[in-house]
């Protein structure tokens, strides 16, 4: 596996539209649930152990079995009750594929798959393994809202990056768990949910003015 290739895939500067999404943070800030670094830590830990775990599991499975992308995509639909989150995930999947096609030849995959599925298939095309795909997925679920928090709340970027560093071992741990279960049937993969992320996403989607798409 090429470590540099993993860095390319997980780079926040990858032109895949990730900067337009706050991972639910904008809604949490507006609801008064996140105001400072301590709240952000609680938010990120909860998001990592729910959406992050699911994203890691599906990125790993799609990387191990790119031809099964469609069944995995359906399984993510079943795990995403919020229409706003389904839309955001597919928009990010499509944007990632656009960037990915310019970098590596991709196997057949739909036009607008869920983001973790796109990430897994892309990782496979880049020659990366399931654990690397899962690390990129888990890490991305943390860094997206963390950078949004710096922009929305003006938090100290050093403190926020210290938080990301503290969560790195947990990203590794989740990725190892995800990579060990890539052969499971989609129904058996984790479905860890976060009710306030669903609620917040639906509320956020009704706003006329917002900084982030989700």
């Amino acid at each position: 596996m090429s470590l540099a290739t993993l860095l390319v895939l997980a780079d926040g500067r990858l032109p895949a539209g990730g900067h337009a999404h706050s991972g639910g943070l904008e809604a949490a800030v507006s609801a008064g649930r996140v105001a400072g670094v301590a709240d952000l830590e609680g938010f990120l830990r909860g998001r990592l152990s729910t959406s992050g775990l699911v994203a890691a599991a599906f990125a790993a499975a799609a990387c191990a079995h790119p031809s099964r992308w469609s069944g995995l995509d359906d399984a993510l639909d079943a795990r995403t009750p919020s229409p706003a989150l389904r839309k955001a995930s597919r928009a990010q999947g499509r944007a990632l594929l656009r960037a990915g096609r310019a970098m590596w030849p991709l196997p057949p995959i739909g036009r607008e798959p869920h983001h973790p599925v796109a990430l897994g298939v892309l990782a496979s095309a880049a020659g990366l393994g399931p654990e690397a795909a899962a690390v990129a997925a888990a890490h991305g679920t943390v860094t997206g809202p963390a950078s949004a928090a710096v922009r929305l709340l003006g938090l100290d970027p050093y403190a926020v990056h210290a938080l990301i560093a503290r969560l790195a071992p947990e990203c590794d741990r989740l990725a190892a768990v995800a990579a060990a279960r890539t052969d499971d049937p989609p129904d058996d993969l984790t479905a860890a949910g976060a009710p306030l992320l669903d609620l917040g996403a639906e509320r956020h989607a009704t706003w006329e003015v917002r900084l982030f798409a989700s």
Partner: peptide, 26 residues
């Protein structure tokens, strides 16, 4: 077809369950 799959974990073994992404103060 699988229509809905959901898991929820609360309590001391569930990281972030009472944080602002999962249940917050609810």
């Amino acid at each position: 077809r699988t229509l809905y799959r959901h898991e929820l974990a609360v309590g001391p073994a569930a990281p972030g369950w009472s944080g602002p992404a999962v249940l917050g103060t609810a």
